[in-house]
Design a protein around this nucleic acid. Structure first.
Lengths: 221, 221
DNA sequence: GATACCATTTTGGTATACCAAACTGGTATC
DNA sequence: GATACCAGTTTGGTATACCAAAATGGTATC
């Protein structure tokens, strides 16, 4: 694998894993020495991560994107538009057997599953559901939205009950799609996204002092 | 303005203006000498244009994105999802005076207006309409879709009647939004996009031999 | 103590040298 | 004539040197 892809992947993991906090400044020279690559691949990685919304310009330099509560609300609206469109397409397909694979993915999580895995599966559910639509643009949009939501969802304070509720909602959506009931699937998905947004924004808003104490930049809604 | 932004802007204009044909190969050295910049800003521009979908990888090198009829259909579905979502948001706003500005923009076109201007206004209509929603992600999505459709729409064979019909449809959509009738606006916009897609794909499909004769790569649906 | 100012350092933007892999064109071989 | 092969060239990937602008930090001045 090329250095460019290597730097991009490792830097993305550090940002998503909060090893580099939201709002933290980045210098090309630091990344260069941190990953043992020269500035050329570093700059390529920065340009790519900028389009993913994980980093942004801070004056002349670079900074990890802050947690932006207003942005989370806008992303939820965007998600709803594209995910509902995707699920309607999928519900209209003759072959909806791909649903079973996603259901199996959900079922691979149980009480002993680490939180990190719940997190990953929770995002992959939406991405894989969008993939079934066969529309590359809807898929890309969902993947992009999930990437931007990833850190916020990780910071969200979620209890067992919330995880279980999301799991049940996911299964209910799959059942509706599998049954070809596009309207029901759309309604369930819509409510799921709205509820997810509310819990997420509320949790982060309530915990914003704690987050700032950890050195994370949090932009109010 | 920096060299990077300069190269990016000029190269984008050459691609959108079909001065470099769909499918044509690009080398970093050619761009370097063409615009009098070194490879560093050239590479930055290429990476950006790649995320816009205007260029892509062709093996190890670069190539201008071909006209892809299947992709045009997928973009139409994507557009419908995000544009309808945006228009529903806008129809629910208290202050919808921004509509008047867009209407004035439409009215600035008449029989003497050059085709290039009709083209630009036709895309800006959708972009500005999405902007009124206030949702950055919906706006970005529409702008991105329009960029990807730009070359295809330019190559489309459109008569006076088609331009007039699109103009009337645009006005009808604005009227519905202004009146706060989200359902009507959504329906009109949905039909407008579907009709636009059908005419576009049919036109390019019928003319695909002519396009290929001009050296343009056209990927069938 | 606050502030304006200057020297130094840091940083992103740019140009360029070098390399390995891929491509090209010609040639020898069958 | 087709094909396998090889030398030369081209190309993207990478490292690095240089620059101007910005940030930094210390100091003189009030």
């Amino acid at each position: 694998m090329s250095q460019m892809q290597n730097v991009e992947r490792q830097l993305r993991e550090m940002i998503l894993g909060l090893e580099i906090g939201p709002g933290e400044r980045l210098t090309e020279r630091w990344i260069e020495s941190r990953f043992g690559a020269s500035r050329t691949p570093v700059r390529a990685a920065l340009l790519r991560l900028e389009t993913e919304g994980l980093i942004g310009r801070d004056g002349r330099g670079w900074a990890v994107a802050p947690i932006n509560l207003a942005e989370l609300g806008q992303i939820a609206v965007y998600r709803e538009a594209v995910e509902v469109a995707a699920v309607r397409l999928t519900a209209a397909l003759e072959d909806r057997s791909g649903i079973d694979v996603i259901a199996a993915m959900l079922d691979s999580c149980d009480a002993e599953t680490p939180r990190e895995e719940w997190h990953r599966v929770g995002m992959d559910f939406h991405i894989e559901l969008a993939r079934l639509s066969g529309n590359e643009f809807l898929l890309r949009a969902v993947r992009d939205a999930m990437t931007r939501l990833s850190r916020a969802r990780w910071l969200e304070v979620r209890d067992e009950a919330a995880l279980g509720r999301a799991w049940a909602e996911h299964h209910a959506i799959l059942d509706a799609v599998k049954g070809g009931d596009a309207e029901k699937a759309a309604r369930l998905l819509s409510n799921h996204i709205a509820g997810s947004r509310d819990r997420l924004v509320t949790s982060l808003h309530d915990d914003r002092r704690g987050l700032r104490a950890r050195g994370f930049a949090v932009v109010a809604a």
